[in-house]
Design a protein around this nucleic acid. Structure first.
Length: 238
DNA sequence: TAGGCCATCTGGTCCT
DNA sequence: AGGACCAGATGGCCTA
């Protein structure tokens, strides 16, 4: 019923429809009414407002200003949410990384962070399966972590955990290619945040050579059937 | 200076 | 009808 619209329709402004709104042109075509209906309507109050071009221009401008204001606020709230996400990411706990993550980096990092946490939970589930089956725990226990005593298998598996951390922080060719099951990522736009991903506190005491790239110290953990714990897939990249 | 990132404006479309 | 959402355009700022 754009005919009665108080909006700045094409009928009001004389401008092409595409410039004035989304009301279909067909909606502005006269409807087929009975003569009786037309008669009653003739004396009804005109619903198409007569506005001078100046008024129309002023209305358009105020609406545009309001729309701009809403859009600005919308983007601000979006950025605010992005900032909240940015600060909970591990990267934010390294002040020396002065350059804050860009928007796209924040989203990529968040995706990969969630990914590695999910993988960690999966691995934890595997550990419980081992325990239930009466098999030796392939991963370091909290007791071992506290005491600093580890078996070779524990060292290897633990280093893989760390490798996952390294992977999400820097899934570039060098790191990725050395991790079994991971494909190289040739996308140079993928974020490169070498070394800024921290591991959990209990892992930070792990006695391994932190001066070496994690990827050179790790192997994939395998279960009793020689199947890797992880089913590697590519973390998010664009 | 080119390229990346960002904020803002703008018009179109969809939804309530 | 008006607001939300979206994508394209534009210009400013910064850095390699």
């Amino acid at each position: 019923m754009a005919e009665y619209s108080s909006d700045l329709s094409a009928a009001e402004t004389g401008l092409p429809h595409t410039l004035t709104g989304s009301t279909p042109m067909s909606a502005m075509e006269p409807s087929s009414e009975t003569p009786a209906a037309k008669k009653t309507k003739r004396y009804s109050r005109p619903r198409v407002r007569c506005r001078s071009p100046t008024v129309i221009q002023r209305l358009k401008k105020t609406r545009r200003v309001k729309a701009n204001d809403r859009e600005r606020n919308r983007m601000h709230s979006l950025n605010h949410a992005l900032e909240k996400l940015r600060v909970v990411l591990p990267a934010s706990s390294f002040p020396e990384e002065s350059t804050k993550l860009t928007k796209i980096e924040t989203l990529r990092f968040a995706y990969n962070y969630i990914w590695v946490l999910t993988e960690t939970l999966k691995m934890n589930g595997k550990m419980q399966e081992y325990e239930a089956a009466g098999l030796p725990n392939p991963l370091p226990t909290h007791h071992n972590l506290a005491s600093g005593h580890f078996t070779d298998a524990e060292v290897k598996n633990e280093s893989h955990l760390v490798d996952y951390s390294s992977w999400i922080a820097s899934p570039d060719n060098t790191t990725a290619s050395s991790v079994s099951g991971f494909e190289s990522n040739s996308d140079e736009s993928f974020m490169n945040l070498d070394g800024i991903f921290p591991f959990p506190d209990q892992l930070s005491t792990f006695p391994m050579d932190m001066s070496q790239p994690f990827s050179q110290q790790s192997i994939l953990p395998y279960d009793a059937n020689n199947v890797p714990f992880y089913q590697p897939y590519m973390p998010f990249s664009m």
